Amino acid sequence: MNEGQVSRSHVGKAVLIAGPTASGKSALALELALTTGGVVINADSMQVYHDLRIITARPTGAEEARVPHRLYGHVDAAVNFSAGAWVNDAAKALEEARAEGRLPIFIGGTGLYFKALTAGLSVVPPIPTEIRDDVRARLERNGVEALHAELAARDPRAAERLNLRDRTRIARALEVIEATGRSLLDWHQEGEPPLLPKDSFRAVFLAPERDELYARIDARFDAMLGAGALKEVERLAARSLAPLLPAMKAHGVPALIRHLRGEISLDEAATVGRADTRHYAKRQFTWFRHQLPEFEWVKLGEARGWLAASVKSARDAG
């Protein structure tokens, strides 16, 4: 067996690397892939978009050339890409990795993707376009508080579980109850089996100290601006896409679009972008702690030790 590649007897296993934005996940995944001959599979809901390489800190072309990368930049920003669509793509990437005898390394910060991967995904019928458009129009016209009140009247259980400012999930829950007559919570109880059953993977959540993480977030946002993020967002804005599309809500994008429209300065846009990203990181900590207890939490300084253990486990299994 090639030293850099795990044996085919091990390809049923997988490694999952999660963590808040700017926590060092990409470097760890790249190192693991280089050591094991693995393939890096994206599990970040914004890095799927072709239009958003810089502002989402996708791997560089040079990094992608070093080891195989899958599910990065393969979706157009005009697409309302869903967790269900990602699972379908992930299933194909997982099958290809196993066929090639490569260790699948899933990496990202989107908790719902990892939960779908390890616990399965509910199968909600397609929402009619007219219902989705009507809900979004009401959201823009009346605001998120009014939409949450509507949801509370129609589906109080779902409303109680949602953050009052979570525009996307409130709209989604209301769409589902209006289209199907059933709560989204009920649909969640009926779903497809997970792609990775229990004991078929090792999972780690990188958990830097908060002050260190926030400093990394701020520095990375500034670096992205220096690398051309504003031009990237300008090209995206020129497409005049619907503002509620996921790609249009990527951290930093709305604030930079406001700057391009002359509403705020670039410094103000950067301040908003950094703050939004820090708030998102805080939510990631909370979500993974409560929703994915199977992930082992490690500090940044422990990551290399965890990596070494993962490599040994892969080789021992072969």
Results as ranks from 00 to 15, higher is better:
E31S: 14
V144G: 11
G109F: 08
I264W: 05
L121P: 06
L260K: 05
L230G: 10
A159C: 08
I170Q: 11
A269F: 04
R261K: 13
V15C: 13
S82M: 03
R132G: 13
A153E: 15
I127W: 04
P293E: 12
T168N: 09
S26P: 04
S122F: 03
I264K: 11
D133V: 01
K25Y: 08
T60E: 09
L139D: 01
I41S: 12
F106I: 10
L151N: 12
L230S: 03
R154L: 15
R8M: 11
V272W: 09
V204P: 05
L117Q: 10
A158C: 09
T35C: 11
V39I: 13
R132P: 01
A275R: 15
A223E: 13
A14L: 02
L94V: 07
G38W: 05
V75L: 03
N42M: 05
R278N: 11
K299N: 07
A33D: 05
A255D: 01
P208K: 01
A18M: 02
Q189I: 06
D44P: 00
V40F: 00
T180P: 08
R98M: 00
E175N: 01
P293A: 10
E31T: 09
F201C: 03
A18R: 04
V123P: 04
F221L: 13
A309W: 00
K282F: 00
F201D: 00
L245V: 11
A137M: 02
D218A: 15
D166F: 03
A57V: 02
A22E: 10
R132C: 07
L244P: 03
E96L: 10
L184Q: 08
L241R: 12
A207E: 14
V15K: 07
G262R: 03
L230K: 12
